[in-house]
Simulated assay, not measured.
Amino acid sequence: MSTELRTRISDAMKDAMRAREKERLAAIRLILAEFKRIEVDERIEVDDDRALAVMDKMLKQRRDSISQFEAAGRADLADVEKAEMLVIQDFLPTQLSAEELDAMVTKAIADSGAESMRDMGKAMALIKPQAAGRADMGDVSKLLKAKLG
C-alpha cells in the first residue's frame, strides 16, 4: 500500500470524505476495492504499473457500459459511468495526443520490423508499456492495423 499512486488515491479519498463528495468518494472506493481484490486473489501487492493497468481496464469497462446504457436509452446510468470515468482519469497520466500516439505507433513498427498484420503482436508489445493508462488500447490497435494493413 506504499506506492506513490496508491498514496495519491488514498489521500484523494480522505479529501473527498472531508468535502462530502459522495460520487467522487464512491468512484475512488471502487478503484481501491479493485486493488484489494487483486491483492487478495493473487496474493501480491499492486504496484504502480499494475495499478495503471487496472485503472485502464476500469476505463474500458466504463466505456463499454456507457455505449450499452446509451443504446438502451438509460442516460441516467450512462451519466454515472461518465462521472466514474472522470475520477479514474484523474489518477492516470496525461493522455497521449493523436500526434504522439501516431509517432509512437510508427516508431514501434520500425523498431519491431513489423511488415504485415502477422507482425502486429511484436509492435503492440513495444507500444503497450508506453501507452498503458495514457491511451485507449482499442484506438492504438486500430491505428496499428491501419498502418500495417
Rank of each mutant, 00 (worst) to 15 (best):
L5I: 07
E23W: 07
R118S: 12
L32G: 01
R118Y: 09
I28F: 05
S116V: 03
M13I: 10
A123R: 00
E34N: 09
D15S: 13
A16R: 04
L25R: 12
V46L: 01
M55N: 01
E42T: 06
G73R: 06
I28D: 02
A71H: 07
Q95T: 11
D15N: 12
K57G: 13
V54A: 03
M85D: 06
R74F: 04
E45G: 05
G149V: 06
L52I: 05
V87D: 01
A83M: 10
R63W: 13
D102T: 08
L92H: 05
R29K: 15
K22F: 15
R74P: 00
T3H: 04
Q68R: 15
L144S: 02
K145M: 14
K57A: 14
L77V: 03
L143K: 13
K145E: 08
R118M: 11
E4L: 11
R8K: 14
M137S: 03
L59K: 10
D102Q: 09
K145L: 07
T7N: 14
L96T: 01
I127E: 03
I38D: 00
A26G: 06
R118P: 03
E39N: 03
E81R: 14
T7D: 11
A123P: 03
D49E: 15
E115R: 14
F91Y: 06
Q89R: 15
A108K: 00
G121K: 08
A135I: 06
R50D: 00
I66D: 01
D136F: 05
D49P: 01
L59R: 14
E45H: 11
A114Y: 05
R37S: 07
A125C: 03
E42M: 10
I44H: 00
R20W: 08
K142E: 08
M117I: 15
M13E: 11
A27I: 03
E100H: 05
D111M: 04
S10E: 14
L52G: 01
K60A: 15
K14A: 14
M137Y: 09
E81K: 10
A110W: 00
M85W: 01
V87A: 00
V140T: 04
D136C: 04
I66P: 00
R6C: 10
D15Y: 08
E42C: 07
A16Q: 06
D136P: 05
A146N: 11
M17N: 14
V140E: 02
T3L: 01
V40H: 01
A16I: 05
K82I: 11
D139A: 10
D41R: 14
M13Y: 13
A146F: 15
G73V: 05
F35A: 02
K82Q: 13
A103S: 11
S97Y: 05
D49T: 12
A27R: 00
M117A: 09
M85C: 14
G121C: 04
L25N: 09
M117F: 12
M55R: 02
G133I: 02
K128L: 08
I38L: 08
A132E: 13
A53L: 11
V140F: 05
I28V: 06
G133W: 03
E42Q: 13
A26L: 09
R6E: 10
K60T: 13
A135S: 10
